[in-house]
């Protein structure tokens, strides 16, 4: 992606991992508009591949994807680049996955549909910590 090649040190780098393409795209637009450097991936493997190339600040991760379970992806993310904060954003709300997510080092657990401002604030909070 050409924008990400223009390395602007101040821009927050966010990795979106979700197999809902439309959702990823609209989030990309809204976050980009707020000066966030977004990389869109549409599966767990794509996300992992992207992380191997770039050190992202924050990842927004869906839990239920066709190729991989989000929690597995989370574990791998944390192995590859532990400093990256992961925000889980899922439509499959469940306490068990929330607990496990926190256990594996997720920064936050949000459920769809979520208010955009809440997500944005969480990202901000994640990088300020």
């Amino acid at each position: 992606m050409p924008e990400s090649q223009d390395v602007n040190e101040k821009k927050i780098k966010v990795l979106l991992v979700d197999d809902e393409k439309s959702f990823v795209e609209v989030l990309n637009k809204r976050l980009s508009k707020r000066n966030i450097d977004v990389t869109m991936t549409f599966s767990g493997t794509e996300g992992i591949r992207a992380l191997r190339k770039v050190d992202f600040d924050v990842a927004i991760l869906d839990l239920k994807m066709e190729d991989m379970n989000g929690l597995e992806v989370l574990k791998i993310f944390k192995k590859i680049y532990p400093k990256m904060e992961v925000i889980i954003l899922t439509g499959h709300e469940s306490e068990q996955t929330a607990r496990e997510g926190v256990k594996y080092g997720a920064f936050a657990y949000l459920t769809k549909p979520c208010v955009f401002e809440q997500l944005y604030d969480t990202i901000k909070k994640a990088i300020s910590d």
């Binding site: 809902e20 959702f23 809204r30 439509g91 709300e93 459920t111 769809k112 549909p113 208010v115």
Partner: peptide, 11 residues
Amino acid sequence: INNPVAIMVQE
């Protein structure tokens, strides 16, 4: 339902 609703809301 959550997924499409989320998209609608974000759109």
